[in-house]
Design a protein around this nucleic acid. Structure first.
Lengths: 204, 204, 204, 204
DNA sequence: TTATAAGCGAGACGGTACGTCTCGTCTTGGT
DNA sequence: ACCAAGACGAGACGTACCGTCTCGCTTATAA
């Protein structure tokens, strides 16, 4: 009975898709994620509810795609400036630069609400969490891997170090403070993390 | 007009409070947090809904208190046994022991669902997040501070190191992997984190 | 802000409407009007509560419509049979016939509960009372007017008499006894009312 | 187990009783009967809910007693002026006088809300209805019986007429219009009812 | 060039849970 | 013992959304 054929995406309305992204991001910013209901998105986008249910499995999925799309458009607008990791040869300086920028981004109110919402949803919904990590988080982390490997080849990082683990020593503390709001997230903290991570806690 | 006087907690029914804790924890374990409704908790606890709304501001607050109470009872049952941080003199070994235990706890399915639910809720609701940190997280973290300070006094940790930041280098990577499910959370990973954090990434 | 547009009645589910009528009448008969909740009607009708709230302003309005519908269906089933007022030429006899039938109807237990409930609600809620009168009471009373006017033309009723007032002399005492339960409502009483009303109380 | 002994009325607080009457009448006047809850009465009277439940079986019973008490106090204040039925020898004139006064009373807004509420409740609740009739309605009606019997002895009313039925011919139409709001309730209507009832509808 | 079938906007539907309100009972402490 | 106060179990209220399901209406192939 239950046919459940997937919809023909070639006939999908681009117009509606954009309107839904805009409505979703707008609502999350204005009333918070909890009150961003599918009905409200549909109403604001001037779209039937079914059009959302046809193409997305959940409210969080809509927001995730809207977010990714936002990033893509931003990148495209900026003429695709790589957004690569700086490599001045001074690893500590480069890391501090990037981590400070991360701190600023995490402290940006416009960025905060939807990201927290997505992170929270991803923590509970493994499917969504995987997408979140794959599409939003991993690409950024990969840049650390590249930079760390370069430093390793330059003899600035110990040979045995696994860059994939090393990067977590740098990034996780920031994420930790941001997600759990244990203590304020400052540039000084970012600098301290870099110093501690590079030179260790133990007496030499 | 809006009087809204707080209820008289001296007349609160202990019986109902326990029943609500039990029902909440039971339901979260059985059907997950998302489907643990206040109505269901009230029904299972044999309690009026108003009795929940009278004493807790939200579903998450109920679960948080239930969780804390569970911890308290466990501690009490066990006759308040240590719960302290090991101090064998070997800092690396002690840290590995504790972080491995943390890994095991985070990987325990019984523990996972409610903790994820609470963490996710706390990420979005600052009020609840603060309680979560204050009542559940901070007490554990404080033990790290104590142990690190002892190591510092023993000359095993560099003098300038702030234990409160140092501990995040150790704990945050575990939390990060657990919350975001980037990569598997293993004893080997815990060991690596301790080694990297203690001795740093940079070439000496 | 408050849009509150009325629903599109062309898309209304006939199925649900009937089910709601049946459930409402059934429940009033079984548990009484006071215990006939909207939740119970919805549950028994296999209908969402919103479907009731969408189309009716109150519980009493549902029952009123159900009642009217019941009358309409009964009339339709019977092939629209007479329902008219008898006119044998003997006004007293005709009135006694009709008033005795009214007495029987008012004394019918199946009829009593919902009618009392509606009447009581209409007494307190002017809106509903108006509908009650217009849709259920007035059509019946109009038959009296017709019959009395015929009698007037036949010279059996004094020329100056206003049929609309005259009818109340006949009908109100029955309603009075029924609503207020002052004294038993019998055929003898109906006969007495007709005799008194037609020939007056005063000595000629 | 369920003892359910009746409370000792000798120790009853007169103070509370009065406060409850006042609160009940005040609330019905201000917010209508539907919103006059027992909780609200208790709160306004500065009385525990149990004190109401202890002495009255229902909200309507409270209001009924409050109403009766109001009448008693009014009578007492006025020095008990009989309130008897006028008897000038002219039955028609006396009846018109009284019925016009009744019309005025029924049209008095202050009087309307609680009386409608009580009547409506009495229609549905036989117990309460009986009390309503016995304590409020019958005493008034008895005055009609007395006056009609006097007229009968004076030869102004036909010998066979039962005053108890006759009075309903006069009073019921007014009640009918008031309760059901079929048509406006005016002095002219009261006069017409008296004329019609005294001299009948039929041609002599 | 029409028909035909998809996506679409709209929104009614059967449901579930919400958070509030009131019910009538029960408990506590005060007089 | 009655009382004021109010917590309690119970459950209906009316609202908000859920996800599904028709409805007509474009709109773009395929006959």
């Amino acid at each position: 009975m239950a046919e459940n054929r997937p919809p023909d995406s070639s006939r999908r309305s681009e117009r509606s898709r954009r309107a839904i992204y805009d409505a979703a991001l707008g609502l999350v910013g204005e009333v918070g994620y909890g009150k961003t209901t599918i009905e409200a998105i549909a109403a604001r986008a001037g779209v039937g509810k079914q059009t959302i249910y046809r193409w997305w499995p959940s409210r969080a999925a809509v927001l995730l795609e809207a977010f990714i799309d936002l990033g893509n458009r931003a990148a495209q607008d900026a003429g695709e400036p790589a957004a690569g990791f700086p490599d001045t040869g001074d690893l500590a300086a480069d890391l501090k630069l990037v981590l400070r920028a991360t701190v600023d981004e995490l402290n940006d109110p416009a960025f905060e609400a939807p990201t927290r919402a997505l992170a929270a949803e991803g923590i509970v919904d493994p499917e969504l969490g995987a997408q979140f990590v794959r599409k939003l988080l991993d690409p950024s982390l990969q840049l650390y891997v590249t930079r760390l490997r370069a430093a390793q080849e330059a003899g600035q990082v110990r040979a045995g170090i696994d860059p994939r683990i090393a990067l977590e020593l740098l990034v996780a503390p920031l994420t930790h403070r941001w997600l759990l709001r244990t203590l304020p997230l400052t540039h000084a903290y970012a600098d301290a993390i870099v110093d501690y991570a590079l030179h260790g806690l133990a007496t030499p």
